[in-house]
Every structure is written in structure tokens, then in C-alpha cells.
Simulated assay, not measured.
Amino acid sequence: MQISLESPAQPDVVALIDALDAYQKPLYPPESHHGIDVAALSAPNVLFAVARDGQGRAVGCGAIVVGTEFGELKRMFVRPESRGQGIAAQLLGFLENEAKARGCLTFMLETGPSQPEAIAFYARSGYEHRGPFGGYGPDPFSVFMEKPAA
């Protein structure tokens, strides 16, 4: 498997993002969807990584929006058929290292309570629960977590 920073504006990567949206949209009301689109993922302050299998297929993606106070993890997704191989952990580690190299000292994320596997994964990866951050407000459909850069 290969993980690298890539443009999100590629057909196979857009298909990953579409698969993530198809999974998440039925779980939460529209006002509780906080995903960002391909244009926002292409901004200069966004680190967007793609995991590709041995045949070059995009099997996972994720991003960190690097801000002045923290980096926000966005759009983490691994195709269901590729899960259980440690891809998410490698992708997360890659993104965190890239963000740290750019001076990011804290990582934040927002996910939802209907995704207990994601919450457990982030907890195993060192993220702890916290209150809303940035432009988020309290939302019963949001779980907020943070991790200091090591």
C-alpha cells in the first residue's frame, strides 16, 4: 500500500468521497453534516492523503485542514472491503506527521455518535472527547475529539 498527498479532484478519489457521503447522509440530519467538498479539500491549507493498494486503486482517504490554532481531521474513509488491514491507522499517522511537519500542535475532529467504530478508532489513536471547537456549536449528532501532537 502507498499513501501520499494527492489532489482530491480525481475520479477515483471523488468516488471515495461519494461513498463516504452515501454512508453518512442517512445517519444524521442535513444540518449535522459537516463534510467539506472537493473544492475545499483542494485549498492550500489542506493536506489531502490517499491510500492506494498494490494495483493503484484508491482505497482510503483523509484530510487535515491546517489552521492557525489546530488541524482539523476531515473526510477520513476506508472502503469497507479494505478495512481491517490497518489502512486507517496508517493514513491517520501519515496525515498527523505531515501536519506536525507544518507546525500543527493539536488535532481536532468532529464525528457522529452513530459511528461507534470511528469513535473507538480515534480513541485508540490517542484522541480524547472534548466540547465543540472552531465554528461548531453543541449538537447531539456530533462527537468532538482532540489530540495533542506528540
Rank of each mutant, 00 (worst) to 15 (best):
P132T: 08
A58N: 05
F48T: 02
D53V: 04
D139T: 06
M145Q: 13
L73C: 15
E69R: 04
P8Q: 05
L73G: 06
G56M: 05
G112D: 06
F107Q: 06
G35L: 09
D37A: 11
V46K: 14
Q2Y: 03
V78P: 13
D53G: 07
V78M: 08
Q85E: 11
Q55H: 13
E117Y: 04
V13W: 11
S7Q: 07
A118V: 14
M145W: 02
Y136N: 03
A49D: 07
D37T: 00
E69S: 15
V13P: 06
A149C: 14
S7A: 15
A51L: 10
G86H: 04
F94L: 04
M108K: 11
P148I: 01
H33F: 09
T68L: 11
G137S: 05
F133A: 00
I119A: 01
K74D: 09
G93N: 15
E110I: 05
E146P: 00
A89I: 03
I119D: 02
A9L: 03
C104S: 04
L16C: 03
P30L: 09
Y122P: 12
P113F: 02
S32Q: 00
G84E: 08
L20K: 07
G112Y: 03
S32C: 12
E146Y: 13
P30T: 03
Q10Y: 00
H129S: 11
E6T: 08
E98G: 10
P44G: 13
P138A: 15
C104Q: 02
V14K: 00
G103M: 01
A19G: 08
H129R: 14
G67Y: 03
K74Y: 02
A99W: 08
G84H: 03
N97K: 11
F70I: 02
I17F: 13
P138N: 14
Y23R: 08
S42G: 01
K74I: 09
Y127N: 07
Y127S: 00
M76N: 08
E6R: 08
R75E: 12
A63D: 14
L27K: 11
G126H: 09
E72A: 12
K25V: 08
H129V: 06
A118T: 14
S114H: 13
A118M: 13
R79Y: 00
C61I: 08
P8L: 03
I119S: 02
P44Y: 12
L27G: 04
G84C: 03
L105P: 03
L5M: 04
P138E: 15
